[in-house]
Each structure stands twice: as C-alpha cells, then as structure tokens.
Simulated scan of single mutants.
Amino acid sequence: MNKWLVALLGIAAMATSAVSQANVVQDQMKLIASNYRTVLKTDSPEEFKQGLEAMKQAATLAEQGTPSKLEGQDKDSASMKDFRYGLTTLIGEIDSAKALADAGQFEQAKQAAEQFKLTRDEFHKKYK
C-alpha cells in the first residue's frame, strides 16, 4: 500500500510541476503584454525603458518554462528550442530598442518596439 501511495504522490507532483511551469509561462506572457502596451503608449523615455526592462525580465523567466501547448515535450525537442529561440529573439529586440532609447533616439526606439509585434505574431501562432 505504501508503494502505491508514494507512486501516486510522485505522479501528482509531476503533474503539478508541469501545470505550474505552464502557468509561469502564461503569467510571464501576460506581464510582457502589459508592459508592451505601456511601451507603445508612453511619451516618457524613462517609462519606456522601465517597460522594456520589465518585458526583458518576464521573457527571461518565460524562457525557462514550458508553454502549455508543449507540455510533456523534452526540453531539447525542436519545438522547445524554437520556443526559446523566439524569446531570445524578443530579448535581443528589446535590448536594441533600449540601446536606441539610451542613445537619446526615442522615436527610433519606439519604432523598433513596434516591430516586436512581428515576433509576437510569429511565435504566438506556434505556441499559444
């Protein structure tokens, strides 16, 4: 009986872990979206940079998780690598926009941020 109980608890823990990871990704994606709205609407370079930083932190955390659409796949599967590549691409775009803002090129930085939509759309089709 004890072996069954231990096995059942192990299975429950693994299932909870997978759901938890998917929720982490989902929660971080919501943070990215929320901050992206701020980045697109603000006229303040400081608020713009803060929004970009929050987006980058959320993308970095999401990169470590597994989206619900890919639950059960190996972390080294082609789909998981592509999911992480999408977030790495977004992080690079965020860094580029921040560099423009830091250089005083706020309008160019905002234009660069508009391009995040292309990355979002491409990877949402696959993994959302």
Rank of each mutant, 00 (worst) to 15 (best):
L8G: 15
L8K: 15
L8Q: 07
L8C: 12
I11P: 13
A12F: 13
A12T: 12
M14P: 07
A15F: 09
T16Y: 13
A18K: 10
V19H: 08
V19E: 05
A22G: 13
A22E: 12
N23K: 11
V24S: 07
V24M: 07
V24T: 12
Q26C: 04
Q26V: 03
D27C: 10
D27N: 11
Q28N: 13
Q28V: 11
M29L: 08
L31Y: 04
S34L: 07
S34Q: 10
S34D: 14
S34Y: 11
T38M: 15
D43E: 15
S44W: 01
S44R: 04
K49T: 05
L52W: 03
E53C: 01
E53Y: 05
E53T: 11
A54K: 14
A54E: 07
K56Q: 15
K56E: 15
A58F: 09
A58M: 06
A59K: 08
T60F: 13
L61F: 04
A62R: 04
A62Q: 06
E63Y: 06
Q64L: 08
Q64N: 08
Q64I: 01
G65H: 07
G65Q: 05
G65D: 06
T66I: 01
K69R: 11
L70I: 00
L70N: 00
Q73E: 12
Q73D: 01
K75W: 09
K75L: 13
D76K: 00
